[in-house]
């Protein structure tokens, strides 16, 4: 029995642009997040009357509290970026629950997120210390390596955790399918033998760890590291 573990599948190409299934999923997720944000912030009142406005205000104040406690009050305008990163990363990783390939198990998508953060670190450094003031630390080549290691390690940490979940879940499904055929071969009806009985229920426990816990943790780590690195670039 063949176990097929592949990367994201290429659906079609537009000129030089390759569109994979993770890119399509990620656009759907972006549209979903935008729609939810639009729905939550529609006709707001000065004093909240509806439940959805209370939820929206709670979410916004949670993000503000997080940035305040990690980066300080003057970094408040950084909060929308943090919230966007968190929402995208979390919803992307959770989308693995619906059976599609999670966009965060694609290296390119995480790399894009990490490069945005990397650009932000450099821009913050240049803004705070001037062009030469920021780049003179690269006269020591070790600093150059550690600077480049930042986005690489962020990418690999997030990608590795989610992709490991995908690989292990695939292996578990294959193993459970095999074991259920072994057990059901005792019944001499070929229709029943095809049903992978053991796949019901058992992977859910693994899914709680890999899809729910890891998704939340990695999204949290990603935004925490982003905030720490950006606020560190200033001094």
């Amino acid at each position: 029995m063949a176990v097929e573990i592949t990367g994201p599948k290429v659906l079609f190409t537009i000129g030089p642009v390759v569109v994979t299934n993770t890119i399509v999923t990620s656009w759907v997720i972006i549209a979903l997040i935008v729609a939810v944000c639009y729905w939550l912030t529609k006709d707001l009142k000065p004093v909240p009357e509806t439940k959805k406005q209370i939820v929206a205000e709670k979410l916004v104040s949670m993000v503000y509290d997080l940035t305040d406690s990690t980066m300080g009050k003057k970094w408040r305008n950084f909060a929308p970026y943090v919230a966007a990163l968190f929402a995208y990363s979390f919803v992307s990783s959770m989308s693995g629950l619906t059976g599609v390939r999670a966009p965060t198990s694609d290296l390119s998508i995480i790399l894009a997120m990490a490069l945005v953060t990397f650009t932000m670190i450099q821009v913050t450094g240049i803004k705070a210390k001037g062009f030469w003031g920021h780049f003179k630390k690269f006269l020591n080549p070790l600093n150059l390596i550690s600077e480049i290691a930042t986005p690489v390690s962020m990418t690999f940490r997030h990608f590795g955790n989610i992709a490991a979940g995908v690989v292990i879940t695939t292996l578990l499904y294959a193993a459970l399918a095999y074991f259920s055929t072994v057990i059901l071969n005792l019944i001499p009806i070929s229709f029943i033998q095809q049903i992978p009985v053991l796949q019901v229920g058992l992977p859910a426990f693994l899914s709680i760890y890999f899809d729910v816990f890891t998704s939340f943790l990695q999204a949290y780590i990603f935004i925490m590291l982003t905030m720490v690195y950006v606020s560190m670039a200033e001094d």
Binding site: S153, F156, R157, F159, G160, N161, Q218, Y220, I221, L225
Partner: peptide, 16 residues
């Protein structure tokens, strides 16, 4: 949890 996730990265490099 934050410290664990950062400490995990060398293991993740091996996995990659």
């Amino acid at each position: 949890l934050f410290g664990c996730a950062v400490a995990e990265s060398t293991g993740i490099y091996g996995l990659v």
